[in-house]
């Protein structure tokens, strides 16, 4: 593999571009220079830290430390799901539903990919496990957050229709089916769009990265395809689980719609 290393000087040159546009903002009185520089600094610090942690983890190749890092990633993603709920489930419920659905889906799919397709030695080798988990987690997180939000929004907006179905003797599952479908359509929209547009509109980041690292395009495409299928599977699994648990929470065992269990009621 022919791979071009960047040295400090190269990075400094790239950073100079950021300083340049900050100067431009100052000149034009746009007042975005502060935000831009702070965000750039934050990005540099975070990535340097991640680089150090990954280096250490790759040296250790310990199932415990790898597992701990994976758990931390899941917990952070769960927080993200909770933060994206507007007038949805109460914070603790959103966190609980989101995190458990994501843990189940992402763990299942990542282990499946590692043990049957990528097959590193050992299978939990963090060099493969963590980037794979990260990509699956990021997409599953978005799917679950969108699905739960659409579900609770739909229950509020379509309350009269849902209760009309209940009044005519529908079970809670049947009465909630229309908004269950809407929630899952919304949850899976980004991944379905990504599957359709990949290669035509966007070159996926991972594939680009592998090509820059010297991998043959066709080899990079194979990796990318596998990842896309894993992401689609993981997102669907996670979103379906979260939305079904959400439907259960939004109704009770006497087949009532329980909007009083949402925040802001």
């Amino acid at each position: 593999m022919n791979y071009i290393r960047l040295d400090t000087w190269d990075l400094a040159l790239a950073a100079l571009l950021l300083l340049g546009v900050a100067a431009l903002s100052l000149l034009l009185q746009l007042r975005i220079e502060r935000k831009l520089l702070l965000a750039g600094l934050r990005c540099a610090l975070q990535l340097a830290l991640v680089g150090l942690v990954l280096t250490k983890l790759f040296e250790l190749v310990s199932p415990w430390w790898t597992g701990l890092a994976a758990l931390a990633m899941v917990l952070f993603a769960g927080r993200e799901i909770m933060a994206r709920q507007e007038r949805g489930f109460h914070a603790l419920w959103a966190y609980g539903i989101g995190t458990s659905a994501m843990l189940m889906a992402a763990a299942l799919v990542t282990v499946f990919a590692l043990t049957t397709q990528v097959k590193p030695e050992p299978w939990y080798d963090p060099r493969y496990a963590l980037p794979l988990l990260g990509m699956i987690l990021g997409n599953t997180m978005t799917g679950i957050a969108l699905g739960l939000q659409r579900l609770t929004e739909g229950a509020r907006q379509q309350r009269a229709g849902i209760e009309a179905l209940l009044c005519l003797g529908a079970t809670r599952r049947k009465a909630m089916l229309p908004i269950t479908r809407q929630a899952l359509t919304t949850a899976l929209m980004p991944i379905i769009n990504a599957l359709a547009a990949t290669g035509l509109v966007s070159l996926p980041g991972m594939m680009t990265g592998q090509i820059l690292a010297g991998v043959e395009p066709l080899e990079a495409v194979k990796y990318q395809l596998m990842i896309m299928f894993m992401i689609a599977g993981g997102t669907t699994l996670g979103a379906v689980t979260a939305v079904f648990v959400g439907v259960h929470r939004l109704t009770d065992n006497r087949d009532r719609l329980r909007l009083d269990r949402l925040a802001g009621e």
Partner: peptide, 16 residues
């Protein structure tokens, strides 16, 4: 089954 036997028509009925 209860709601099929004890029907309810609200003042502003819902439609799905």
């Amino acid at each position: 089954l209860w709601r099929r036997r004890v029907g309810y028509v609200p003042a502003e009925p819902g439609w799905w």
